[in-house]
Design a protein around this nucleic acid. Sequence first.
DNA 1: CTTCCCAGCGCG
DNA 2: AAAGCGCGCTGGGAAG
Length: 567
Amino acid sequence: MVLAPAAPGAGTASRDGQAFCLQPADATGAPTGPAAVVSLADLPGAVRRAEQGRVRWVWDTTRSSYLPMLKAGASVERCHDLTLTRNILSLSEFAPGSDYVLSLRRSAVTDEERDGLPRQVLPVPDSPDQFTLFDSPQPRGRSVHELIRELQDQLAAVAGSSRRGRLQLLVAAESAGALIAVEMEYAGVPWREDIHEQILAGFLGPRPRNGERPLELERLVARLRELLDNPRFNPDSAQELLRALHRAGIEVKSTRSWELQEHNHPAIAPLLEYKKLSRLHSANGWTWLDTWVRNGRFRPEYIVGGVVTGRWASRGGGALQIPQQIRDAARPDPGHKLVVADAAQLEPRVLAALAQDSALAAAARGKDLYQGIADVGFGGDRAKAKVAMLGAMYGATTGESGRLVPQLTRTYPRAIGILERAARTGEAGGIVSSYLGRSCATPSERWLQAQRTTTAEEQRRADSIARTRGRFTRNFIIQSTAAEWALCWLAELRRRLRSAAADGTYVGELVFFLHDEVMLHANADQIQLVCRIVEESAAEATRLMFGPIPIEFAVSIAVVDSYADAK
DNA sequence: CTTCCCAGCGCG
DNA sequence: AAAGCGCGCTGGGAAG
């Protein structure tokens, strides 16, 4: 059975926007009975009753339907997100050329043509705690009939795929991710405001009045003005700073920290210090705390599939860039621990699996893949092996990284071979795909235009643009497949946590996800179980995606009382 | 005044 | 030590 909660305005839902329309349907998406309108208050009961069978909830946008459900006390087992699935199918090389898929591709082109025009901006809740109902982006208020219609088209497209099993897994994992993203937003990362303030005070001095510079920054500015003999300049302005440096005889082309580092001048050290502290103040200072932390929780919004490769993006508070400096403020509640787990060297392991490179798989057998590579081809030098591997996956051409890559090619011809193939495909304007079938976009009209050149000057430019796309597609096959593995890992984690909870054991909840790392806010009495769940989920993710392969995807787990201790 | 782009830096 | 992938956010400054 399939149930379709619909936004108000969709046919039978009530006027006040507080009701859901539930339409039971069979596995093909065909309705099997009359639609029911359920108020928010009755929702938990209705969901429980529906989930006595194996059901999948279907909606346009998970966040706009599921966030109000969670607030009403109803969580669900499985869903199908029509928008996320639509995005995958519209690009996937694995999707068949059905009428539905072709129509998606046509409208994708018009989206591209529309690029540059202002997009519809939607009202967002002004505080993370005030969730508005049905703030979904278009297509707003589609009828249940329309939802079911599209569900049928999507299920048919997946069933008709040449790589049906893989695409099915991708679509399921993407929707599971959508549930997890909303649940993590609802849960929030436990965040101690008092500790955060202590950190700020330690680095910057007492909290300044509105808009004023903190004491420590003010001190550094005074010092810099003196050292650069420039009584009025403002180091926050890159232009002013560059001029001031030049006048002091420091010949830099930019004001980047790494470039400044190469110069010897008494002003350099305090300037680097200023940049570091100024960054902390503007990005994660008191304003950040006031804006993004409420009632002991940091609640970012996660954008599933927000990155072309299928990685998640986030909105609000820079959730995926929390600097080391402030991680100490992430602390568990009493009776809890933070369990922080990350997949060790996920991307090269993915490469080994994708290429079925048994030599690389052998290096991946141990906990430390880079050491394994180093022992075979780099005289045990782990740092060199790592730089070489990253260079191969990113397309480095110069520097130490570029020089070391050929050494890898000799030992791992299959692995390097598929990277090279992906790069050549991209340079020629072709499409590449992840293991499960997430494909990159076709080149833009502008890109194709740039390739049609005549003069030698234009040709050099065209080649450079082509190589840029080659580096993108080279990396795409790795990053996108790694994102899929992480998604499967998350989904398995969630499944096991829920099943333990259903058996009466509260083990904890997922509260944060960062590409290849997860954080759980865990019951301190169930840490052993949590760790086992984390490890079993990783093994199951590997099996689900690749079947029985001789590659281990190692996870490292830290059980801590502060996020700062996780690494 | 608002809107847009860039430089710079944080994360993986 | 640093040039090669993917992002979000901030402040400055130019453009409108």
